[in-house]
Simulated assay, not measured.
Amino acid sequence: MAGNTKLNLWFGIVGFVITFLVSFGNNLWTTSLFRGILGFVVWFLLAFVLRFILGILANPAGAVPKMPTGDDVPTQQELSQDDQDRGSRFDVVTPDQDNELHDLLTPKPADSGPKDEFAPLNPPKLVSTKQQDPEELAKAVRHLTQK
């Protein structure tokens, strides 16, 4: 992390002053003091987060190449060639799935014909109107249309 804790304290003090002054106009001094202390804590922690992010951006982990140890130490020319090629190659190999694809595409002998043909749904009727008198039905229709 860049800097030290003094920077966090200054951020916290600035947060306390801003929060206290904004809150003092509309609240009691105790409420304003409490909110100022909360502002100090929030700004203090915000400074830690900001310093952490700036520290990562200033010195990313991949910026300094790690030197291998042992007898096979690369030369400076090889290191510079690796730096030039870094990020330009994408080395990925997909697994061989030809047999699975072939099995999916070839039809199976058991799946040659449809087993069940389509049959429309024919639910039983709950109410039958064949047994009722037509005059009673006409009365019911007249009654429903009047209301």
Rank of each mutant, 00 (worst) to 15 (best):
P114E: 06
S112G: 13
T106H: 05
M67E: 14
T69D: 14
T75P: 00
T94P: 04
L105V: 07
D72L: 15
A61K: 13
D98P: 00
V92Q: 12
D72N: 15
D103E: 13
D96W: 00
E117V: 15
D82V: 08
Q97W: 00
E117C: 11
Q97F: 00
V92H: 11
M67L: 13
L79T: 04
S88C: 09
P120R: 06
T75E: 04
Q81G: 03
G62F: 08
P95Y: 01
T75C: 00
R89V: 12
D71E: 15
Q84E: 09
T75Y: 00
Q76S: 07
M67W: 08
K108Q: 15
T106P: 01
V92E: 15
K108M: 11
V93C: 03
D96K: 04
L101R: 03
A119M: 10
T94N: 11
P60Q: 02
R86P: 01
T94I: 11
T106Q: 08
D72H: 14
G62V: 03
S80R: 07
D103G: 06
K108F: 09
Q76V: 05
P120Y: 07
V92N: 11
F90K: 10
Q77V: 05
D85A: 12
D85W: 01
K115E: 07
D96I: 03
D116C: 01
D83R: 07
V73Y: 09
P74M: 12
P60I: 01
T94C: 06
P74R: 10
P65S: 06
L79S: 06
G87C: 02
T106D: 06
S112V: 15
P109H: 03
D111P: 00
P109V: 09
P114K: 03
P68K: 13
F90C: 07
N99K: 14
F90G: 08
Q76E: 09
F118Q: 04
V92K: 14
V73H: 10
F118K: 08
T94Q: 11
P74A: 12
T69W: 07
A119D: 11
R86Q: 14
D72F: 14
D85L: 11
E117T: 14
P95I: 02
L105P: 00
R89F: 14
E100L: 06
E117H: 14
P74V: 09
L105S: 04
G62H: 07
P107D: 12
N99T: 11
F118D: 04
M67A: 11
D98I: 03
L105G: 02
Q76P: 00
Q76R: 05
D91F: 12
S88L: 15
F118H: 09
D103C: 03
P74T: 12
V93I: 06
V93T: 09
A61T: 10
E100M: 04
Q81W: 01
R86A: 15
D85C: 01
K66T: 15
D91K: 10
P65G: 07
G70P: 11
G70T: 13
P74G: 11
Q76T: 05
L101A: 08
R89Y: 12
G87M: 01
A119F: 08
S88A: 14
D82I: 07
T69V: 13
L79G: 04
P109W: 03
G113K: 12
